[in-house]
Design a protein around this nucleic acid. Sequence first.
DNA 1: TGACTCATGTCAGCATTCTGACATAGCTTC
DNA 2: GAAGCTATGTCAGAATGCTGACATGAGTCA
Lengths: 152, 152
Amino acid sequence: MSQEGVGVDLETSLGYLLKEASSALRAAMEEVLRPLGMSVTHYSCLELLAQRPGLSNSELARGAFVTRQTMNVLLQALERDGYVTRPAAAPVGKALPARLTPRGRRSLEKASAAVRSVEARMLAGLTETEQADAFRVLQGMIRSLHGDNGDA
Amino acid sequence: MSQEGVGVDLETSLGYLLKEASSALRAAMEEVLRPLGMSVTHYSCLELLAQRPGLSNSELARGAFVTRQTMNVLLQALERDGYVTRPAAAPVGKALPARLTPRGRRSLEKASAAVRSVEARMLAGLTETEQADAFRVLQGMIRSLHGDNGDA
DNA sequence: TGACTCATGTCAGCATTCTGACATAGCTTC
DNA sequence: GAAGCTATGTCAGAATGCTGACATGAGTCA
């Protein structure tokens, strides 16, 4: 420990800083979700369904940044435990639109409040301008990483 | 797919955007590291050791944002394969200072270049000012999440 | 000195996520 | 209509990371 000054450019790397921030956010979310018996991916799935009812398994996977296989495992557990329902047959194609049950909605309430408080704490030290800056630079990073060059 | 307009405030959540950016960065890193037979944590460990020789297992774990148990497994594999060396006995306490072998340093070279190119791509669309903004707001988020209130 | 606290390294078991693979549904193109 | 392509849901196995637990070394304090 305590070898300050030796550090090289990990301290100046925006990639490293991004990972650090994301890690801190995830840890803070896990901390408040654990007492509710809910993991971050678990919460993400319920929140996505609350805001966009009828999302399919694959769409939920993309929204929660996991593979569709991973989301499938979670979704089957949530369905088994009565938080989510899916029709037995697909109304169109193979995609099964998922929806929250009243139980799922109830379970999400406390979790959603807890997560919002974490996000509020994260932004507490930032001015409105800085939050707008954050929004813009993060979107810029995402665009660049996805290969969007910005030209028409 | 294609249900634009239904989205609620996931689109405006800085926490969600942070997770999305981090996920995109990780995916881009995995993409360039995979041909080199290296995972992100694997690379992180070697890079940390290159920049700060003599870090212990626990310190490496903190630097790579994993538990010390996880880093221990990785470190034993790296040691077994000759990328890293640790003394048999601790010079002080229990901490074993780890160092890269020439082979480890050689293995890191290509990976480091690849990762730097990813980071460069991520920042390509941002002005110098925006990069400075990014640095400031990310540090602010980390501070807030860790409970630092900023007062003396 | 002895008790207490803290950090570390490590083993074991479990949870989570991923990659690989397959079958099926819809769309496009010929 | 048939072929080809893409997206989806799902099963199986492997990789990865985490929690729990234990022993050890160092510092603190009575």
